[in-house]
Simulated scan of single mutants.
Amino acid sequence: MTAMRNMGYRQGAFTLVEMMVAMLLGIMILLAVSEVFVNNNRTRIEIENTTRQIENGRYAMQLLEGELANTGFFGEWSGAVPPAVGSPTVTACLSSEDDVRKAVNVPVFGGGALTAGSTDCMTGFKAGNDYLAVRRTSTCAVGDAECDGFESGRYHLQVSACEDDDPGEILLQVASVVADMDATQRDCTSQAPVYRFLSRLYYVRDDNVLMRAELGAGAYVSTPLVDGIERLHFEYGIDSAGADGEVDKFVSEPTAAQWANVVAIRIWLLARNLEPTPGYTDDRSYTMGNEAAYTPADGFKRQLYTSTVRLNNVAGRRESPVVAGAAGAEEPSAQTPSAPAI
């Protein structure tokens, strides 16, 4: 029994100093692991924010490029010069059938300041940005497979191919009631294809969202498209020298007479992260065309995207004009506008 008591005494327990050292080492290891976890989590969040910003910027640019690729497409009409439908409509929002007819002469229109009536179709417009109005028809005819049907109250466009018709009167048939669509094909009997007329405006809302306002049945309907789009700017390529479809100069504010001659558009789009980055300050200056440099000086990371888009349906018609009245000259066939389906 004495031996057993001596053995238990020799085993003993941890001293207070040993326990404190062990606890300190454990805390240090825990702090190191926590620091690694926090840094990894912060890095993951930053990567997600940057990836989302890149995706938003690229997607917004693709939307604009795809829309401009179809701008100026008006169904079977493939004339070398705009039809005689009156003076061009140089306005953002279309509100009548007469506006729609005249808008054919101005497939694109834009600006940096809202005019009277523009607030009706671009709610929440963010000051300091540009908007872009595009006019075209759907790339498929009403009744085709996977194409929207005729919608009463919306504007539609129909082109007459009958040689007996007077092009000055019914080259373009615009109506919002299907019974009024009476233009015919080359046989002068069969109904000509009917296309839905599209009037769309792209702009940045005051909460940094790319918006699209589209003319519906009697009013414009706004749809949010992409988050994190902070600034938007356009410049317009004017074909003024020989009406050959080539850009002679780029301007930021075309005159009323120049809008019908826009054949290309430069786009500047500034996308930013949805959340600020701790400890980061964006002190870079972003230059978009001839606008004053923009220096945000805040904690959001940004990326500037730019692209130049040719308006194929506008410029293409100018490349092969119809030769009329030239003795001995061969009359080339009219060029059909391109319309990649989107």
Rank of each mutant, 00 (worst) to 15 (best):
T2L: 13
R5T: 15
Y9W: 08
G26E: 06
M28Q: 07
A32Y: 03
V33P: 06
V33T: 12
S34L: 01
N40V: 11
R42F: 13
R44N: 13
I47T: 03
T51V: 14
Q53G: 03
N56W: 04
G57I: 11
A60G: 15
Q62A: 14
S87M: 10
P88Y: 02
L94F: 02
K102Q: 11
A103M: 06
V106M: 10
F109W: 07
G110R: 00
T115P: 04
T115R: 08
T123A: 11
F125D: 07
K126I: 03
K126H: 03
K126F: 06
D130V: 04
D130F: 00
Y131P: 09
V134H: 01
R136G: 10
T137H: 01
C140G: 15
A141Y: 02
G143C: 11
C147T: 04
G149P: 06
F150A: 04
F150P: 07
S152L: 11
G153I: 05
A161P: 06
A161Y: 02
E169V: 14
Q173P: 09
V174G: 10
S176G: 05
D180T: 08
M181R: 00
R186P: 06
C188A: 08
C188S: 11
Q191D: 14
V194F: 02
V194E: 10
Y195H: 07
R196T: 14
R200A: 15
L201Y: 00
N208E: 12
T223C: 13
I229S: 06
E230V: 14
Y236H: 06
D239S: 07
S240Q: 08
D244N: 08
E246Q: 11
D248K: 03
V262M: 09
R266A: 15
N273D: 12
L274W: 01
D282F: 03
E291S: 15
E291I: 11
R302I: 03
Q303M: 14
Y305P: 12
T306L: 14
V309P: 02
L311S: 05
N312K: 01
N313H: 01
G316K: 02
E319R: 02
V323P: 07
A329D: 15
A339M: 06
P340S: 07
